[in-house]
């Protein structure tokens, strides 16, 4: 069974939305203290969870059709966004290994597409 491009696009969209979830969870987690109010009234954490829920909605739509052995590895594209936002919002540096990892992931996804038949 050939995996349709539309399914890949949905998984890709899910990984993009999910990467924002991670940003807000990280931002919210940094503001947690030994006070339940910092958890309950933490809008960043709530927004992070909302992004993850939205992301899983699109992921489910994405895996309705097509092969999981093609679609699931595409989730790793989310790491590209995560590295980008980590630099932008948290000042985490780009390193050689990060570029190497992203490069391998991209080549891997290109190969998966060649194997999609």
């Amino acid at each position: 069974m050939r995996t349709p491009i539309s399914s890949m696009a949905l998984v890709f969209l899910a990984s993009f939305i999910g990467s924002f979830g991670a940003v807000f969870l990280k931002g919210g987690a940094g503001r947690l203290h030994r006070d339940i109010k910092t958890l309950v009234l933490n809008w960043r954490l709530a927004l992070g969870v909302a992004f993850f829920l939205l992301s899983s909605f699109f992921f489910v739509l994405g895996v309705r059709k097509g092969e999981l052995s093609i679609l699931y590895p595409m989730v790793s594209l989310g790491y590209i966004w995560t590295l980008l936002w980590s630099r932008l919002f948290f000042g985490e540096p780009f390193t050689r290994n990060k570029f190497l990892g992203i490069g391998l992931i991209l080549v891997g996804i290109a190969l998966l597409n060649l194997g999609n038949r």
Binding site: S69, S76, Y79, P93, T95, R96, K98, L111, L112
Partner: peptide
């Protein structure tokens, strides 16, 4: 009952290595 082919095997392997490398501390900026 999905199928495997050499492209898929190589593709997933590269992704696994890629993700594994992401966590390593890079020596200096790129």
């Amino acid at each position: 009952k999905e199928t495997l082919n050499p492209f898929k095997v190589l593709g997933v392997s590269l992704i696994v290595f890629g993700v594994a490398i992401l966590g390593r501390n890079g020596k200096g900026p790129a």
